[in-house]
Simulated scan of single mutants.
Amino acid sequence: MLHAAIASGALTALALTGCAAGGGGGSTGGSTGGTGDETITVGVSWDKMIGFREGEKAYLEQAAKELGVELVFQDADSDAQRQSSQIETMISQGAKGILVIPYDLEAIKADIDAANAAGVPVVSFDQAPADVSWVAYHVGGDPYADGKAAGEAFVKIADGKPFQLVELQGALNNDNGIQRSKGLNDAVASASNIEIISQVPTDWTPEKALAGVENALQSHPDLNGIYVPTEGQLSAVFSALQAVDRLKTVDEPGHVAIVSIDGDPSGCQALKDRLINLSLATDVPTMTKNALTQLLNAIKGQPVAKPELLPGIPVTPDTIAEKAPLVWGCQS
């Protein structure tokens, strides 16, 4: 796990003419992809293509343009074998480096080893492999810190009064899901007034989130709060609340307090509509830029930064107007 370590379409042929020398900015010194007609081509291997990944893709493309890098994208569609095959093809067709969000956190080691054996460095981002020492560099959000911040927000919202909380959980076979849950539970553990009445493993899917909230509302119609670990589930949560007339703004009596993570377009709009109390917005622009910059450093044999975690940017309905420029989902 990351905290333990540091605290499909056809593949387009890769046309590249070699590595160019370069220098410049970045999180710990940086690289440009090339000079003149020279271009470095980098393969990007997604675990699956969801709304959040689309946001990451847009910022990767922006960073690639700034750094003079060509990107080739592949989507594993939640299939570890497909991801392995796609990475193998990227290597055989000449990619100089690979950015990866692993689907299977253990199985990806074989693919990283194969890339390294071919002299192709691998950088992971957003979701870490089981051991970050396998990759040249990793950057992602800080799932534990975000979960803890969410828990602390619920403690403040409850203000010592009895508080029934539903915890939606992400996938419990990866660090993001596990640590976002652990951070929340650690933060509320000392608040005896807060009772987690339901923990719902969702595998990040809105369908399971919807069913979990519906069931919780049936058994606890007066519940006080819902923890949403990914904002791709907000529409499902709102639908369940609206069905029982519990979808209220933060200013209305009977509002169900909601804290969510991501800072995606739906989270941005929910803040503007005053339907959620807090969003912890992932710093996608910094994450993607750092991932690509450090991969270029590795490709060129330059110093590479240590793995890093980026805590979410806290945004409330009262601060969204001021902080919107910092929230990636508000830029679309």
Rank of each mutant, 00 (worst) to 15 (best):
75 D>M: 10
76 A>S: 04
82 R>W: 05
84 S>N: 04
85 S>I: 09
90 M>A: 04
92 S>F: 14
92 S>A: 13
92 S>P: 12
94 G>P: 06
94 G>H: 08
96 K>V: 11
97 G>N: 06
98 I>Q: 05
104 D>L: 05
106 E>T: 07
106 E>D: 14
111 D>W: 01
112 I>R: 04
118 A>V: 04
121 P>M: 04
123 V>P: 01
125 F>N: 00
127 Q>G: 13
129 P>N: 00
131 D>S: 14
132 V>M: 05
133 S>T: 07
135 V>L: 00
137 Y>I: 01
138 H>E: 09
139 V>S: 09
140 G>I: 13
143 P>M: 00
146 D>G: 04
147 G>K: 12
151 G>M: 06
152 E>D: 11
154 F>I: 02
155 V>M: 08
156 K>V: 10
156 K>E: 13
159 D>I: 11
160 G>N: 08
161 K>E: 12
162 P>V: 15
165 L>D: 03
166 V>K: 09
166 V>E: 14
167 E>H: 12
173 N>D: 09
176 N>W: 15
176 N>A: 05
177 G>D: 08
177 G>C: 08
179 Q>S: 06
179 Q>A: 12
180 R>I: 03
183 G>R: 10
184 L>C: 06
186 D>I: 06
194 I>D: 00
198 S>Y: 01
198 S>I: 00
200 V>W: 07
205 T>C: 07
